[in-house]
């Protein structure tokens, strides 16, 4: 089963990392992914730009309206995701645990089984 591991953390904290700190964290996270990638289990991975760069399209009274946001009303924001082929939930939890161990942001990982997966050929 394919799982999506969704990363939530405080954007304030993550954006405050220095370039060196950010690179260190990214290198450590990449390290964790490496063995899953080698085993051919790791699917697409993405890190998103801050929510301040985001735009939201919402249907208001049947009409699509483009607005700024999402507004960070909550303490944690959706910052990125991984996809991983797992035999069971335990494996997905283990992957998330390994990620969290090298991630000092103190956020959370939401583990969601994927229902429909449509890998596109668009280059990242």
């Amino acid at each position: 089963m394919l799982y999506a591991i969704l990363c939530y953390a405080s954007e304030d904290v993550v954006c405050s990392w220095s370039k060196e700190q950010d690179e260190e964290v990214m290198a450590n996270l990449l390290n964790v992914q490496e063995k899953y990638a080698q085993a051919g289990r790791l699917g697409p991975v993405a890190r998103l730009l801050p929510t301040t760069a985001a735009t939201t399209l919402r249907k208001v009274k049947g009409e699509a309206v483009v607005i700024d946001g999402p507004f960070a009303e909550t303490k944690e924001q959706f910052l990125g995701f991984y996809t991983l082929e797992c035999a069971d939930l335990d494996e997905a939890v283990e992957f998330a645990r390994e990620l969290s161990e090298v991630n000092p942001s103190g956020g959370s990982y939401e583990i969601r089984p994927v229902s429909v997966f449509n890998p596109s050929k668009a280059a990242a």
Partner: peptide, 21 residues
């Protein structure tokens, strides 16, 4: 840049603050 981002998080719909950042 850090301060501009801070302003942008506080005033997320201000196009000039987007422009500044």
């Amino acid at each position: 840049i850090r301060l501009a981002r801070l302003l942008l998080r506080l005033f997320q719909t201000e196009p000039e603050i987007m422009g500044l950042t």
